[in-house]
Nucleic acid binder design. Structure first.
Lengths: 139, 139
DNA sequence: TGTGAACTTGCGAATTATTCGCAATTAGTC
DNA sequence: GACTAATTGCGAATAATTCGCAAGTTCACA
């Protein structure tokens, strides 16, 4: 569970729902709002989906969680303190693989130098085909 | 307008709607289904949004158009023959800038070598902050 | 040139994901 | 303990996309 003071410190009230949402985000990783609600319901059955959405937004505003756009549209949330990494999204099987941000370092730097574009690596998704699906295609 | 045979060649029937959707995608670039429908309505007022969606899917299946995920969720369509480039999506102002795929070449190669992940550059979006918005933040 | 089967379209309804308004409840302050 | 503002639950409202189905079209072939 989230430590009380980390929420209070950021000017947020402490509610069981909010703590549970944050805890669920940390535990699940790359979870959709629906999945997060599901998780929270294990402890707090009555939580409303709106409450989950609102808390995710609030927690994101104070920098405790972040979202990224993986597959199709739906946002996916993860804890902000989690080590940033790249998301390799397979368009065929839908799996999301990880790679260290260092892999993209020179690419990110090139964008900054050439275009003044500051890439937000944590929001960054790479679409393609994973090795498993690539091999399956050949057979 | 799309040349008849390029649709027939791919086993598709030739309908005014289909031709117009393809033409609109080519003309607009990075357009949402809604925008494409809007464009088509200039010539064919009655076209239904479902028809636009279905044709985009069909045209994508035969490789004439492609979609990518830029900002928030909504898909954006462009012609397949268009020169592939990277999309630099600014999270602050929403603008979509372009950069040549070469910028990402070594990055893409690294992913292939290290993870067997074949990156689909045309589906690839880079989130961040554009130079204009970066400068605005400082003031 | 007809004809028929298969493909498409239009339309409205169904889904899905997300947001909003509002009254009731609750957390934090004094 | 009482007050104020933040938060929740709930149901309705949106927005984006998909689906079912009947009517209309396209194309292959006679």
């Amino acid at each position: 569970m989230a430590k009380p003071h980390e929420l209070r410190e950021r000017g947020l009230r402490l509610t069981p729902q909010r703590e549970l949402v944050l805890a669920a985000v940390r535990e699940l990783d790359h979870a959709t709002p629906e999945e997060i609600a599901e998780k929270v319901r294990q402890t707090h059955p009555g939580i409303n989906l709106s409450t989950v959405y609102r808390n995710l937004e609030t927690l994101e505003n104070v920098g405790l969680v972040q979202h990224s756009h993986l597959g199709h549209g739906g946002a996916s949330y993860h804890a902000a303190e989690e080590l940033a990494h790249l998301h390799l999204v397979c368009g065929t099987c839908g799996n999301v693989g990880d790679a260290p941000i260092e892999t993209a370092l020179s690419f990110v730097n090139a964008l900054t130098e050439d275009y003044g574009f500051r890439t937000d690596v944590s929001h960054f998704s790479v679409f393609g085909t994973c090795s498993t699906c690539s091999q399956a295609e050949l057979s």
